[in-house]
């Protein structure tokens, strides 16, 4: 993806990579905010504070 021959590297590819990275970042932050709004952090906490029987191998 980022192979280059000095300054002859395709700027279009680099631009596309930048755009994709920013799109995914915006999407990620949006999903996190929606999740927080839907109180999903509480669900994560509720599961994480108890011993997960399946995880430790007795569930």
């Amino acid at each position: 993806m980022e192979r280059s021959t000095g300054k002859s590297t395709s700027d279009g590819k680099k631009d596309m990579t930048r755009v994709m990275a920013f799109v995914f970042l915006v999407l990620a932050v949006s999903l996190i905010l929606i999740g927080i709004y839907k109180e999903q952090m509480q669900s994560v906490l509720a599961k994480a504070v108890r011993i997960c029987m399946e995880c430790v191998g007795i569930g």
């Binding site: 995914f24 970042l25 990620a28 932050v29 999903l31 996190i32 999740g35 999903q40 994560v44």
Partner: peptide, 17 residues
């Protein structure tokens, strides 16, 4: 079923960064 907005968002965040 609940769509995992928060967890998926965090995974995307770590992955993208």
């Amino acid at each position: 079923f609940r769509f995992p907005y928060y967890v998926l968002g965090l995974l995307l965040f770590f992955g993208t960064l």
